[in-house]
Computed example of a mutant assay.
Amino acid sequence: MSRPVSVRVLAVAAALAVCACAGARAKRSETYGARKGLAQELVRRDDWSRAFALVDALYREDPKDPEVLALRGVIYREQKLFKEAEADLAEALSLAPDNAYAHSNLALVFDREGRGSEALEHHRRAAALDKRNAGYVNNLAFSLFAHGKPREAIPVFHEALRIDPTNPRIRNNLGFAYAGTGDFRHAAEQFSMGGGRAEANNNLGYAYQVASNFAQAFDLYVEALRLQPGLARARQNLQEVARRLGRPIPTDLPPEPRPPTEGT
């Protein structure tokens, strides 16, 4: 007689488990999925305040949704709340270990905190999980470069370009990696493919500046500003290297354009 009782107990337990799961799912409103999609779009647009309001409401509905936890972790990271970001992204991965988005964004938290080995581990995991995502591959390459491994980064940047060959961000990152190895010829080639002539000269100038070749950087910044007088980054960089060299800025350099006045 004991065996049927055990069967009945198991059946009741199973029914209760099903009810519990159904109850957990019922917490989500009919608009949950649509609101999550909107939150994802707001994060893509860097609209952090509106994104957080949506994500926080979604979290209250379902605190175990790994996608919502990952989104909130990204928002925390962008507000420099790194401990909170790490906690949310780590919890997302405990719920969904193969979530490439959470791996990639946790890696970016570790990059910002200078935790290179942990960052690279999660960048590699994200790139392995989503092999056709050029952004994840680029992030892995840039992390290698940022942590002092430019030679290792170069083939990974090329891998990212095979996925997205016209991406200017990847081109410019590859240019800086080449410059990091002392190969300024290939750096210049990549910069020229990553933007206009003025931007390319500014990027190459900055690469020379990082290498302490201030005279070469000075000339490139001047050329960038002759091509595009409104390029603020080049003007700021030129002022810095001019100060370091003790050289005056050329008097015939086109002045910085004035911002338009109201009503014009």
Rank of each mutant, 00 (worst) to 15 (best):
E91C: 03
E91D: 11
A92P: 05
L93S: 04
L93A: 07
L93P: 00
S94Q: 14
S94I: 09
L95T: 08
L95G: 10
A96F: 09
P97T: 03
N99Q: 13
N99I: 09
Y101N: 10
A102M: 01
A102L: 04
N105G: 06
L106N: 01
A107V: 06
L108S: 15
V109N: 04
F110G: 00
R112A: 12
R112D: 11
E113A: 01
E113Y: 04
G114V: 06
R115F: 02
G116C: 10
S117K: 15
L120F: 07
E121N: 13
E121C: 08
H123N: 10
H123I: 02
H123L: 11
R125D: 00
A126H: 07
A127P: 10
L129F: 10
D130S: 15
A134P: 07
Y136W: 13
Y136G: 10
Y136M: 11
Y136K: 05
V137K: 03
V137I: 13
V137E: 09
N138M: 09
N139Q: 06
L140H: 12
F142Q: 14
L144Y: 00
L144R: 02
H147T: 12
H147C: 07
K149V: 08
K149G: 03
R151G: 08
R151E: 14
A153I: 04
V156D: 11
V156G: 08
F157Q: 08
E159V: 04
A160S: 01
